[in-house]
Design a protein around this nucleic acid. Structure first.
Lengths: 340, 340
DNA sequence: CTGTTAGCGCTTTCAT
DNA sequence: ATGAAAGCGCTAACAG
């Protein structure tokens, strides 16, 4: 059993100083090519693969690890196609930059246990646990937010208000009855009409920006939207979406347009509508949000705002790694499908 | 701007020694309750939240971070429902144990950049990059494998051979023509008949164990399986599965049974069969593997081996954290659906 | 170009 | 119950 290989021990067996070994690995310009080669070769033979990264990180103050804080538990995130796509982009770009990914749940009690190991945080959506937000604000490390804002921190976003407006305006007609199937609009974990429940506008949530956009479009068309026709859905899943869709489709008058804040919701809504024997788009038009593959395989295809979440992930990493603290507004694209 | 808070600086301002602060946080029994309370309170007021974890990790040699090595890129993994489910289980159990998750791609060039930061590795499937396997074998850290084996390391598995046997035996009848839609059987990144291509049995891959099980079942039924009817599919995705399914369904004689090494493949196969106007199970029976939700929503529902990947993830974490190096054999369950 | 040295922030004997 | 001091493994400033 060979003993532990450290920079020091290797230096001793090779008969050079520790600095020389360190330089051989980190600063090639500090020693002759010949010596460097010799040292590197010798190290390989010894089985020493370079300075211990943990010690290096303590000394240099950076580790090459980036934490991605999800808004919710990993559990939910990994099963959401939009979040997955975002993560794919993040992973790809991180890899390209030789950085590594520490996935962290936004419902964790504290950032503490990982904060000292990472170079900073990319936050995808406002973390469910508000303590984390405070910690992020106070952190001395780099913080970049996606799909929400933190004062003084760079962020990556799309223009949710305008995108929602565009999607709504493309479908609305005079005389329409409109229902909104919204995501996380109030503080409740059931699907329910917003009614007079207090809106839950924490940190300029994207849901409220989208609602603003829908409302602006309706105003422009002289349509009105009562709070009974705005539904809150606690998370973008089959189940909750279905409950809301069923309820909304049973209302009188029945909506002629469904504005859905995610494609998963849009798909569920279409499923319910078809089940009721409604024709899309003749009887009811449906619009989604996000742009996920599944909407293309479904029939009818769903009109939606495509926001290219994988690109968003890549952009987030680039912005994170990039020193200048500019906040990025990413492009989106309205794609008209058969549903409207 | 307040200066950096360290154990040392805090000790000085509180007028006690560094050891006392350290003990207050880590070893309550080493000082009076009163003093401890006082110190903790004072620290909170100062904004010192405890010893720096990176330094702590350097000193103690453990960080509370566990690397999960995926067999392939994050990209692919995150979009595979079976892997996602596994990760959900891992995340859940890790959280329960206050440990954290570093996600690492099995196609990375080296473990080096993260190895010094983590307490060990949970490997989900054999990493695509074989260098990693070597590094894992040599690592001094804890290594646990899932769905494959590394000599001398604990592992978590199901009995793939027996499970495959059970699923096959449940469906086979005298006179059947059988095709296998297999996963990663040979070294190719196209869907193709195995034919006489050399099998690619790296590290007792689960695919080959499953094939063994299928073959044992066929033998027992006096059926034979020619290499033309065994198809290799490079990854469990719509696309590749579809290509293989189409090809197999076009063969003469046409198979009466399709043994599929994943549910995603099984679903694709059923889709193709239905499209050709075949009746399931009258004209052709289909069996999958894994157990994913989607098979329950599909019509007909798919007969499959349920292996409860989320439980597997939890078990993996528990086994990893647990000192005794036992290798775990998890239960599975054959669930008969309408497809057989 | 090479070696010495003082930390990075912490834990842990060993004295007191 | 508390404090002094020796590292954990490394880097960077400095001197040679």
């Amino acid at each position: 059993m060979m003993s532990k290989l450290t920079l020091k021990s290797v230096a001793k067996t090779l008969g050079v100083s520790t600095a020389t070994i360190s330089n051989a690995f980190n600063r090639p310009d500090q020693l002759s090519v010949a010596l460097r080669e010799k040292i590197l070769q010798a190290c390989k033979e010894l089985g020493y693969f370079g300075p211990n990264k943990a010690a290096q990180s303590l000394r240099k103050g950076s580790s090459g690890i980036v934490a991605v804080i999800l808004s919710d538990s990993l559990e939910y995130m990994v099963s959401d196609p939009v979040a997955s796509q975002f993560l794919q982009g993040v992973a790809r770009e991180l890899e390209r930059n030789q950085a590594h990914l520490l996935l962290f749940s936004g419902s964790s009690p504290s950032l503490e246990p990982i904060s000292d190991f990472v170079d900073g945080f990319i936050c995808y959506g406002a973390p469910r646990n508000l303590t984390l937000i405070e910690q992020l604000q106070q952190s001395r490390k780099r913080v970049l937010t996606v799909d929400f804002d933190l004062p003084g921190r760079p962020s990556v976003n799309i223009d949710n208000e305008q995108a929602a407006f565009d999607s709504a305006i493309s479908v609305l007609r005079a005389g329409d009855t409109v229902a909104v199937l919204g995501l996380r609009l109030i503080d409740s974990n059931q699907s329910q009409a917003v009614g007079d429940a207090p809106m839950w506008d924490n940190l300029s949530s994207i849901a409220h920006r989208r609602l603003d956009g829908y409302q602006r479009a309706m105003q422009q068309q002289n349509l009105t939207l009562s709070a009974d026709y705005i539904w809150h859905i606690p998370e973008s899943s089959q189940h909750y979406a279905r409950v809301a869709a069923k309820a909304v489709l049973a209302m009188t008058p029945r909506p002629t347009v469904l504005l859905c804040m995610s494609d998963l919701i849009g798909l569920s809504a279409m499923r319910e509508a078809l089940q009721l024997g409604l024709r899309i788009p003749e009887d009811i038009r449906v619009v989604g949000f996000d742009g996920i593959e599944e909407t293309l395989r479904y029939h009818p295809t769903l009109t939606s705002v495509w926001q290219f979440s994988d690109k968003k992930g890549e952009a987030a990493v680039r912005a994170f790694l990039n020193p200048d603290d500019t906040t990025l507004q990413l492009p989106y694209e309205l794609r008209i499908g058969e549903s409207s």
